[in-house]
Design a protein around this nucleic acid. Sequence first.
DNA 1: CCCTAAATGCTCAAAGTGAGCATATTACCA
DNA 2: TGGTAATATGCTCACTTTGAGCATTTAGGG
Lengths: 336, 336
Amino acid sequence: MERVLRDAGALSTGAIVSESHRGASLSIGLSAVIIAATIDEPRVLTLRLGREPIEALPSGPLEIEHRTLEAGLRAWVERQTGQKLGYVEQLYTFGDRDRVETGETQPGRALTVAYLALVREARPGGAADAVWQNWYRFFPWEDWRSGRPAALEPIEEGLSRWSAQASTEAGRRLRKERVGLALSASWNDELVLERYELLYEAGLIDERRRDLGCPASGGGPTFGVSMAADHRRILATAIGRLRGKIKYRPVVFELMPPAFTLLQLQRTVEALSGVRLHKQNFRRLVEQQGLVEETGGISAATGGRPARFVRFRREVLLERPAPGLRLRAGRRLLSP
Amino acid sequence: MERVLRDAGALSTGAIVSESHRGASLSIGLSAVIIAATIDEPRVLTLRLGREPIEALPSGPLEIEHRTLEAGLRAWVERQTGQKLGYVEQLYTFGDRDRVETGETQPGRALTVAYLALVREARPGGAADAVWQNWYRFFPWEDWRSGRPAALEPIEEGLSRWSAQASTEAGRRLRKERVGLALSASWNDELVLERYELLYEAGLIDERRRDLGCPASGGGPTFGVSMAADHRRILATAIGRLRGKIKYRPVVFELMPPAFTLLQLQRTVEALSGVRLHKQNFRRLVEQQGLVEETGGISAATGGRPARFVRFRREVLLERPAPGLRLRAGRRLLSP
DNA sequence: CCCTAAATGCTCAAAGTGAGCATATTACCA
DNA sequence: TGGTAATATGCTCACTTTGAGCATTTAGGG
């Protein structure tokens, strides 16, 4: 403990990257998926790394100074992007040996503890090359707000080809089943990771080819912009989790400004979940649940009739057990 | 305790317990919460360690041989308990420096990746001192099946005393708020971890006193049977997660035998969630959702009229997006 | 004044829920 | 053999919650 206090000031000197007696290296990384939302787009904060820039999530190794994993994460993010984090939750710990190229000569393992953070302002991160990106750049097939994404056509083709390629009959059936579930007629917005994994396994994702050591190009199209290491997989995990969570926890408000209109709130939810919602029903839900209260202000009419400004009613947290926007995308609105 | 755990893993050769260049030790542990359910009780598989036995979850250090974290976990569990695992899901990664006593001379960190596993048979684990325990031994206040648990009386007292002890007014309000939420009139069965954390912070849990280096006894009563290290916290996390999950995923069936009656299913769900359910409505739900199908068999009437045997209908996984038992405990039944 | 774009109000039918009443079957017991 | 206890199953009924739309209201711009 004294040790801790003494070291607290030192920067970056105490990374825990250690050698086991068998000569394999082990490092523990902390990665952050930092989400914000502008008017109409969900954003994720990325760093541009390298000469031919590849995008990465803010991350860094766990250090001895860090009292908790979360504290370590906050420190790294601030150091790299200048962003202060508010809402933070642990996402998942990735540790497969095969999926991450350590870039080392020795066999090694990289354990990554990934976190999801929600922030309010989307002002470009202070330091380095931190930039806010529309997350659909990485997952173009996840945005159904203006109808079925065009990318899904070739993706389905690729996936069904992949299904057919399984060596056994059982394998083919299993693959078809997985594809059917992930891309079923009734679009399930939360299956982001499942879909990513399918595309990855089917070789429709750049990272897959990279991990296999394949030539940069070859073997049909790939989809979405790629990211460093397994960061796109982490991002997929985060999006899926967030899409699920807004339905039973009032986390969207972590992304909203202090005062906002109901339409702004709806647009944000739509941006995150990737589907359009029925306006009147959305308002009914939000108001019935007592999620917001009027601020008294009135919006500087952007289009038509001016709207009331509202703010999040923190008290709901004490009242209802699971206050959220259990949105169920209007059926009509999904395929217009 | 830590000593014991280390020893348990010493059989292996490739444990990744490494020394950083700063002299702090880092180990990555894998822990498993293995759940089963007998007729009326939810069970968790524990190991009895040490001379005056203290119970621990099956765990062991991550080794180089392990291709994935999950594979490592399965290996450890089999080695220690003889249990083969079926359904496994990652729970959470614990890494706070303060909460775990390493028992070492050097400052160190123990990272624990915890998993939740569901198994069918509850036959006593093969090796060593593996035993199935009713999980309510560790959380007596979580079982509302026969009315409000008696332990809640003194617990509420202890917590409100703790609330009042906060140094600032704001602190007191915050504590009261947390207590109110976790123990609110409308019991939320999923807040297992929140309640455990409260009791821990309030010093109503043995582990807390141990972590503070307090004498074994002193300062009022503590609740529930304690466990090694932070295993009880991990178990709390697992129970909360499982209670949540059965509501939107058909995971209960991982705990059921191949054929069972609807009442058996209901009893199992009740055992897990700790609340009683309305029988007719439960059956309506299960059948409407198409979660089960008849096997044709008929139960050897335990009490009254014999019941049909049913089995899980795997096809639902392909049909409905979130098939589960969105149970909402009968209001009447909660406080009879 | 007419038109467009939102914000708001309200309706309505269908589906989903919470509580119970009523019957059907068995085992067991006097 | 009839009565009783303990379940299993069917069915009702009053509400709530949803999904979809229609109708009105309020501003700004020709």
